[in-house]
């Protein structure tokens, strides 16, 4: 990976379901938000990516909760207890509407918790709004 590529990772999508990942990427693409997106398929891959010095620090992490090997909660815990990485905005993007997941995520310091709607229109809206907000509107201390 060269320096140029390193610059280009803006969104880190951690999602084990390929369909959900495809729909999410498609939606982001439609709004030109997925140009610098890296898709990883479980929590372990995400941690490996984040803790490899070679890789750039992403501007937004979209994190699914229920994944093989290391789940989303664990990844969130690691990120938010890291003195440097905890400033990366993390948005949980999940099917779970369970109270305990929401409560635990917020306790760990998640930046947003979005439930994936079943209806496609709403799904598209949710992903679009999220991408626009975190990548365009939001200011992060890491990328000034």
């Amino acid at each position: 990976m060269n320096e140029l590529e390193k610059q280009k990772v803006e969104i880190l999508l951690v999602e084990d379901n390929p369909d959900d990942a495809a729909l999410t990427i498609r939606t982001l693409k439609k709004h030109n938000l997925a140009n610098n997106l890296r898709h990883l398929e479980d929590g372990q891959e995400a941690l490996d990516f984040l803790y490899d010095e070679i890789n750039p620090i992403p501007r937004l992490i979209l994190l699914d909760l229920k994944m093989p090997r290391v789940d989303g909660i664990e990844v969130l815990r690691k990120i938010k207890s890291d003195p440097v990485k905890r400033t990366i905005p993390v948005v949980i993007l999940t099917s779970s509407r369970e109270d305990r997941d929401i409560v635990e995520s917020y306790n760990l310091g998640v930046n947003a918790y979005v439930v994936k709607p079943v209806e496609f229109d709403q799904f598209v809206k949710a992903v679009t709004d999220m991408g626009l907000f975190w990548l365009i509107l939001n200011q992060s201390p890491l990328h000034r």
């Binding site: 959900d20 779970s96 496609f120």
Partner: peptide, 21 residues
Amino acid sequence: TYSVSHDLRAPLRSINGYGQI
């Protein structure tokens, strides 16, 4: 119910999404 919320909704979303596409 935890599984339902996760596992049952995901395929529906796919059906819906791909249909829409």
